[in-house]
Design a protein around this nucleic acid. Structure first.
Lengths: 229, 229
DNA sequence: CTACCATTCAAATGGATGTTTAAAATTATC
DNA sequence: GATAATTTTAAACATCCATTTGAATGGTAG
């Protein structure tokens, strides 16, 4: 059992394990999880091919670790922000804009990789587009409670909306967030599919725009066609 | 040069080529384009492995054909709806709800596969999450002009918004549409990630909800932080 | 120094994949 | 009904992959 304190090297060279995770995040996002080869990943990490099976048992477990590593901080931050809002507002309903910002800001701010890209977003988009048992379980563990809490809080803030309608609009909101973040990734720069190529967006402006749009959507009157579940 | 009129068979058994495309759509959406094997596809299509390289030259060209086949009708429908709205409204601005519905309805109604799933949506989500030269080009050809036209029309309807802000909100709207459609696919049923599992949504209700939410988002006042490009 | 641990390495293994080939089967044309 | 074109088939090919193996390396403690 080594605590790995070899004069600490002051962070000069990261642990091989950590380098593997970072390299895997990048390669997974760039080439796709299935298409990414352990050789690409280990070369980028400056490690041997066998290192993956040494530190993780398989490519599958590396995938799990990468996903959890890049998603956990985002949702921890969301949870902290939500708890803070609950504490601040006591029995009163939380202002809609604050609630939406607590959902948006962590994803915008903490979905950046070490190269200025949005690897975590592209990874999340991948695993959501391609439901599979392994990744579904990870997503459930990471997002399930968060989403329940947010939907509940939104229900308190917007009592005129049924739970079903809140759930739907919450889904719309998540889609809006993920779409724009995916499109802002430099890897999507050659997607001429985008009508937003020119706009240079800093995080604060993007957050403000997202909150503005999503809050307005939530404030739309309840639909008569939606009696609730 | 055969016109293939063998008593027509009245559509009893489809062309091998068509069966391959349909099977490929399903397998691509289920397993991912990269992970899908020609053997899975040909087995599902009831054809020989070599059939893919006979009708298409390679897996890559099969991919191109599948994507174009399932996306073209959607955007053709969007284009027709938009043109009809332009004709109906003459010089006047098109009502926002009509515009949004022209964007939403074709995707909701024509993104179903033969099994009641949303294979085209899952495929589109995949190729957007994983930018690659081949698929990027296809997406550009399919969506580029449509998006330009819609952004332009939205700009006429909402003259108080800058072009940049319209583009952003248009991106949000596309994300909302794709997210909910992906989540409604039966393949995502075991994604406990979803707060909308219970709601039984028919297409009409979903369209109304999407239009309601997106239109409200577009109607949010212009942001002072957005002077425009 | 020696023994022990964790880590790294080059090489090999076994399996799966896209693609090709050439023959067989089917269909169309005269 | 014979000939030619089209389509289907089984088998093989070459390549690439994740994973395993066993030896080499390095540092650490006794």
């Amino acid at each position: 059992m080594v605590v790995s304190e070899s004069i600490a090297v002051a962070g000069k060279e990261a642990d091989t394990r950590e380098r593997l995770i970072k390299a895997a995040l990048r390669v997974f996002a760039d080439r796709g999880i299935a298409s990414a080869t352990l050789r690409e990943i280990t070369v980028e990490a400056g490690a041997n091919v066998a290192a993956v099976n040494y530190y993780f048992r398989s490519k599958e477990e590396l995938t799990r670790t990468v996903l959890e590593t890049c998603l956990r901080p985002i949702n921890e931050n969301r949870l902290r922000s939500l708890e803070k809002l609950v504490a601040e507002n006591g029995e009163a309903a939380i202002p809609l804009e604050s609630l939406v910002e607590a959902l948006v800001r962590p994803m915008v701010e903490q979905s950046l990789d070490d190269y200025g890209g949005r690897s975590p977003v592209r990874l999340l988009l991948q695993v959501r587009a391609l439901p599979q048992p392994l990744t579904n379980t990870i997503l459930a563990n990471q997002f399930d409670s968060i989403h329940r809490l947010f939907v509940q809080a939104l229900g308190n803030t917007l009592p005129e909306l049924s739970r079903s309608e809140i759930g739907l609009r919450y889904d719309f909101a998540r889609g809006a967030i993920m779409q724009i973040l995916g499109d802002l990734d430099p890897a999507a720069r050659d997607l001429p599919d985008l009508p937003i190529k020119q706009a240079r967006l800093d995080n604060e402006t993007l957050i403000r725009q997202l909150v503005h749009f999503i809050a307005a959507g939530f404030r739309a009157p309840a639909s008569p066609s939606f009696a609730g579940a």
